[in-house]
Nucleic acid binder design. Sequence first.
DNA 1: TTTGCCTGCCC
DNA 2: ATTCTGC
DNA 3: GCAGAATGGGCAGGCAAA
Length: 578
Amino acid sequence: MQYSQLCKVYEELEQNSSRLKKTEILADFLKKLKKEKDQEIIYLLQGKTFPDYSEKEFGISEKLCIKALTKASGTSDKEIIERWRKIGDIGKVAEQIMGRKKQNTLFSHKLTAKKVLDNLKKLPELEGKGTIERKLALISELLTSASGTEAKYIIRTLLGDLRVGTGEGTIRDSIRDACFETSSEEDTSKKSLNVMDSENKKQITETIQDAYDKSTDWKLVFEQACKGLSALKSTELTPGKPVKVMLFPKEDSFEDGFSRVGKPALIDYKYDGFRMMINKNNNQIKVFTRRLDDVSKQFPEVKEYVKKYIKGESFILDTEAVGYDPETKKYRPFQEISQRIKRKYDIDKMARELPIEINVFDIIYYNNKSLIKTPFKERRKIIEKIIEKHPYKIRPSEAIITESVEKAENFYKKAIEDGEEGVMMKNLEAPYKPGSRVGYGIKIKPSENDFDLVIIEAEYGTGKRAGWLSSYTVACRKDNKFLEIGKVSTGLKEKTEGLTFKELTKKLKPLITKEHGRTVEVKPKLVVTVVYQNIQKSPKYSSGFALRFPRITRLRPDRKAGDVATLEEVKKEVERKS
DNA sequence: TTTGCCTGCCC
DNA sequence: ATTCTGC
DNA sequence: GCAGAATGGGCAGGCAAA
């Protein structure tokens, strides 16, 4: 298959925002792909070359894409960055530059999808001295034989950002439509077994989703769907192979929480650690992160705890690991535990200095049986039955079941007093939904504080926000100086109503004093209110602090730069919270 | 040998 | 992580 | 209500430049 054929699909997807239309476009493509040899091409549809659970990385991002473009086109870094600033998409820059170049070339080699796939797949394998040079060579080889459009999508694929708006749901539905016949208005009279009526269609969709949930691999699911329903149904959950985690949207009050998850609900602590999926298959024990990275080596204690304190031959547990101080037994902030996650050296030393407590809050597989569809209350019972509770090692998450808002609030207060982040509320009847943020559970966190800060630098946005100054460096003050305390971007509106990026850009432009690349320095005049969840020590910002999860809530035209929060006030808040 | 940029991935 | 937006 | 896109801080590790 020609890569240009694939690019045509990307273009169409990009031009159509309706999900139904996207599904149609993709289904047509998949019908063609069925007849091809390289089914791996399906990964390219989501800008990938491997299944989601693969840990292979390109090791290429913005800077190296710019280098590769320079190399392939001869255009200077400076011009590329300037174009990027203006149009907010390195892919589009590549399209312009490589497209222009093509006109001067008399013949061009046709790029096949396989060639693109092959070169991309080589990237993760390279290591050691000269790696970057060799990676750039592989990329510019593709770019030089690419058309403008092809260059655009090669770059976007490398950046891991295809921007064609196709997620799992769309892929799933198009596999359904490509592999199973759909009844259209004209032939509703026909009663063929293969023709989907709406009930049937729903079931097929669910079966495909279920197969993906269990395998996390679209290539496999597509191949099975081509064979038929029973092949899809044969997919099984396999402990040792990672599964995507269920996610939880935020809710503001317990009333809202109950109305979403129903009454009674299970409420448990939300720990400020990191997600850990623990898989046991007989003697093999593996630990995966939320993005399906294998961190078994980094957390040797998990094996020990699992062997000693959990009954069962095989299982998959969903847990949160929190770090604590081994002397004082006090829970430590996320910043500290994050030192262990990607560690390759001194693993044992860190394990002693910063041990973890594993809080188990869900189970989706037990003794050769999937529990994905088992109601949550049953799953919780199993957790409590099989885990021997050992605080500071492994334990079921702290939880209550209640239908009272008052009891929920008291439990929440206790969680905060214990130094945790908040609580989760969960629907007792719900199944487990890998990878989706569905309302079977929600999270509740404390109301947050804010500072008024002044904008001293800004950066041009990308994608939807191209052309606007959309990310702002904000500062507090100390005497007559302004000290950076982080960047903020979210909270503003892209369209109308409320404070927009457009408006802020307009206000900032006259204040610009210097420009470098995509960043501008501005006179410290504009004051904004920034809410945040936490204040962290920062190795990067001049104030020595940074805000965790910052977002802008409003403009303060009534305030001057001299009115913004002082470093002293920031320090006082840090004290107050600890 | 050391430093610092870059990337990917936790939140 | 948070937020906004389109479906 | 959900998925998708565009953004935040900070960590370790890998490589290249100093």
